[in-house]
């Protein structure tokens, strides 16, 4: 075969970033706040969502996209709480990407919706890698998982705007140090907002709901405002030479 060489020099996820930017722009136009809800399996994503729907459902029209590898148990629970919901199956994939999210939003039909939650696949790794076009990234760390998780899964804590520390009612039973978890998360991401909550008792959710109300009221922030991507520009690799001076104010911490 007579091969030619093509220089591509493109980030593999460039197409995902472009799709996410289109979603962010469309949501800005329709004034819908998309929240990317992430956390481990069992962290309490669905039960936290039910609490937030209970607190915000009277004042805002809420839509939910339940992403799972399979099943629809979460979608049923959320529909019973009164939100408009669709179930998305990722077909084995461990996260949602921007294209799948855009198709989900179309199927959900966001017309008239103020707030849309994407309940991502339960996973602390992959969802952090894929920008879906959300205006807010909210992650849940639950007490039984341990306060060392920011050390083990740094990207998730780096890209999230909000961290809920769920199951705080069980803190006396577990060796969980809220101060340690908070300072580890803040070392990665000084701007992260931290709320201790219990989806079981409802403790702490009024503050989370107020935070979301504020974001919804602040129209600039709705639909986009903040860039939902770990998008620090990184100097192109030109070989093992001396590194150039940094161009970002704050990059990914490793």
């Amino acid at each position: 075969m007579n091969y030619q060489i093509l220089e591509v020099k493109e980030q593999v996820l460039a197409d995902n970033e472009q799709a996410a930017a289109r979603t962010r722009e469309a949501l800005k136009q329709s004034r819908t706040l998309l929240v990317n809800l992430m956390g481990s399996p069992g962290a309490g994503k669905t039960s936290s969502l039910l609490r937030l729907i209970e607190l915000l459902g009277k004042d805002f029209k809420i839509g939910v996209m339940e992403a799972d590898v399979d099943s629809d148990v979460d979608a049923k629970a959320v529909a019973e709480a009164g939100a408009k919901v669709i179930q998305l199956h990722t077909g084995g994939l461990c996260h949602m990407d921007a294209d799948m999210t855009a198709r989900g939003l179309e199927a959900l039909d966001t017309a008239g919706l103020d707030l849309v939650f994407l309940e991502n696949v339960g996973n602390l790794v992959c969802p952090a890698e894929f920008d879906v076009g959300a205006g807010l990234r909210l992650m849940i760390l639950s007490v039984p998982e341990g306060d060392d998780k920011p050390l083990k899964y740094p990207l998730m804590f780096t890209v999230s705007d909000v961290m809920l520390v769920n199951k705080i009612d069980t803190a006396p039973i577990f060796d969980f140090d809220l101060e340690a978890a908070s300072s580890r998360a803040r070392a990665l991401n000084p701007d992260i907002q931290i709320f201790p909550v219990s989806a079981k008792t409802g403790e702490g959710f009024a503050a989370v709901a107020d935070f979301l109300r504020e974001r919804l009221r602040n129209k600039e922030a709705v639909g986009g405002g903040t860039l939902d991507a770990p998008s620090q520009p990184i100097a192109p690799y030109t070989g093992p030479s001396k590194a150039p001076a940094p161009t970002t104010e704050r990059g990914a911490s490793v």
């Binding site: 060489i5 593999v12 990184i234 590194a243 990914a252």
Partner: peptide, 13 residues
């Protein structure tokens, strides 16, 4: 902060 090392780039084909 990280200067480089978290990229995934198609260099050439």
């Amino acid at each position: 902060w990280l200067l480089r090392g978290n990229e995934c780039i198609i260099k050439e084909i």
